[in-house]
Design a protein around this nucleic acid. Structure first.
Lengths: 207, 207, 207, 207
DNA sequence: TTATAAACGAGACGGTACGTCCTGTCTTTTA
DNA sequence: TAAAAGACAGGACGTACCGTCTCGTTTATAA
């Protein structure tokens, strides 16, 4: 009986048998690192398991033992290696929002992360399963911290109280991601701040 | 001297030599049709020239003679077969906007069109060139008609006059595309209308 | 419908479709040559299609298009490139026999030919089919010329008339092949002649 | 310092350290038995250490600890499990010869034994070393008992006294082995007896 | 008794070759 | 002279074994 070749289920007390040689943590990290670098350099279309194995100094079967497809690998590389978001509270909710979004968006549209996300969305057969995983481990955490800041802004009367926060997040993140997709230019901190400012202005309380 | 293997320049009175057997128009259409169907069925990742040729009943070189890559072919298939946008003027600019967007967005995020667009955005090496082409022939025309309607809404005092129309379009289209990418559920006419309503509400003139 | 990937059936007016690019005769010869050289150098056990392709400067699928297995390829290489046997009639049947056998046996137990033959015999699943083919195209012709010479020797009263020629051939060839298999030293012209002499002596007419 | 991983030298008072867990005799036998069965079933070409380990219910390293290659293992399996030859003296040397050879030859050309022998002969790099070992432990003992019987036949004036016994053995065994190799049909007791009769007839003393 | 040494099964490791599929190019025949 | 058919060199795929290397466990001798 073979074990399903994924470790993305991420339950730390794994059910996998403890007998036999354990999987190498060095190989794991080398593979994810190599995958992320390659994704950033050549894009997902030309991203090959072969090249990842070569760059990581690892046998190809070692990759297949852990991930069942290049999409699984790409998703895990992105998720595991994406910078975590750190929320701060300076007292000024809008300023914190600007700073947070100007960190989140460039990463979201930078090469490797965005590329894997795009590739994911474009592959019809694995979409349902993997898009959810990426959403859950990448997008949802980021939306959550943004939502927290929006709530603080509402309480501080900097944003209309009748606003739909989810929609506001869609507008902010969506506008940036969409511009990036259409024009191809990654979103910078500066352009992220402009979008936040414009949306916040629209959502400001009526005088 | 070989002819550059593209006809995407689309000048109908081509300068190509008229001697010899002419290129088959049936083949052309069969290829584009097959490409679009395959894109919709298997996604861009599993989309192969081989399969397009087989489905179109055509030799592989016949495809390469016309398109230099599968991306070129995918883009042309999408652009040529996407429904044209028909702008109407019922007198109520906002109603016209709602109707227009509720037609544009579902197509934009429906299988084949959206898929090719995504695939395009995700492939680093051809991005600059082809994203521009898709933008020019698919997105820009749609943005233009939306922009026209927004102008009419401004004149009718249904939208604040100091608004940045481009930003508003980014917000509307971006929010929808982003939701589609993240959740995987295509945008319907209904959800498109909700987004328009919300953005228009935000952009309404201050009393 | 795929064509069965063998051309070993050797009917020159093949039923294969005449449309499309014909198979390259250069590739064919390069592959067989490379296969024979490799067989001689590394033996059948370490003989790989990969290496044959590399040495022949040919893509791997080009080999698989023609031969369905490495055994098929090995057999064909041996059969096609084995030197043909030229029978002479000097008047002295026994001398001719000595000369002929001293040419046949060293080739039969020399590296490539013998190796493929051995490999063939050792592989249980293809044995019935391929051993017959090798027998038919390699051994039978050699046995036939030897049988002819033995007949001449019988007529010249140099060999007992009641002899079973097939058995005599088995004795001559078998003793040599067996010695080679057991000791590993290839049969030389000299040792071949010794075997012929001994057997002829045994089979000489009683005075 | 590791011990060379072979036990084929078979000196029971090994120089190996006596401390630690001794090697399991059950594993040893299970491995040899499994190897012999697999050799008989799939031939040497498809014979894999992996399969032997699985069938013997043993870890792969347990095999490598004892034999350095699949050839070593195959040879030992054959040698250890081949039936021993029991020489009898009924008074009639020729009858004893017929009986002995009709036992030896079928085994020599039966599946597992013959297969390993063939595989051995075909592998260029290990040939010199292992062919000698197989010869020494399998062929030489059989040749020796045949030679003894031939001597008795000479003494009994049933065979010419000037005969080269080694050659006679080559003729008998060689003819059988050769027929088996070329035709693929194992040698039976009946066909073995026919060969003996024919050779003995040829080697009979001149009247 | 307890260490200690070495075997055991299990299974992952870096590799190699497999046979398949697709790429983009190139002939050859047919129309 | 373009179209279809199909072979070409090449390269990545995912799989099967290779022979080696940990693991945690078991089994004997030696202390």
């Amino acid at each position: 009986m073979k074990r399903p070749p994924t470790n993305a289920d991420a339950n730390p007390a794994s059910t996998r048998s403890a007998v036999g040689r354990p999987r190498s943590a060095e190989a794991q990290e080398a593979i994810l690192q190599a995958a992320l670098e390659l994704l950033g350099q050549v894009g997902y279309g030309s991203f090959s398991i072969e090249a990842v194995a070569a760059r990581a100094g690892v046998g190809r079967p070692t990759i297949y033992r852990r991930w069942s497809s290049k999409l699984e690998l790409a998703v895990e590389a992105v998720v595991r290696l994406a910078p975590s978001v750190k929320v701060v509270d300076s007292g000024d909710a809008l300023a914190d929002l600007r700073n947070l979004v100007s960190e989140i968006l460039p990463d979201m549209t930078s090469s490797a992360t965005g590329r894997a996300f795009i590739a994911l969305a474009g592959d019809v057969e694995v979409r349902a399963e993997l898009a959810h995983r990426l959403d859950e481990r990448y997008f949802q955490p980021r939306r959550a911290v943004v939502a927290g800041l929006l709530q603080r802004a509402v309480i501080a009367n900097q944003i209309r109280p009748d606003i739909d926060c989810d929609l506001l997040i869609d507008l902010i993140l969506g506008a940036a991601v969409y511009r990036w997709l259409v024009t191809g230019t990654p979103v910078t901190g500066e352009s992220a701040r402009r979008i936040v400012d414009a949306v916040v202005d629209l959502a400001a309380p009526r005088p």
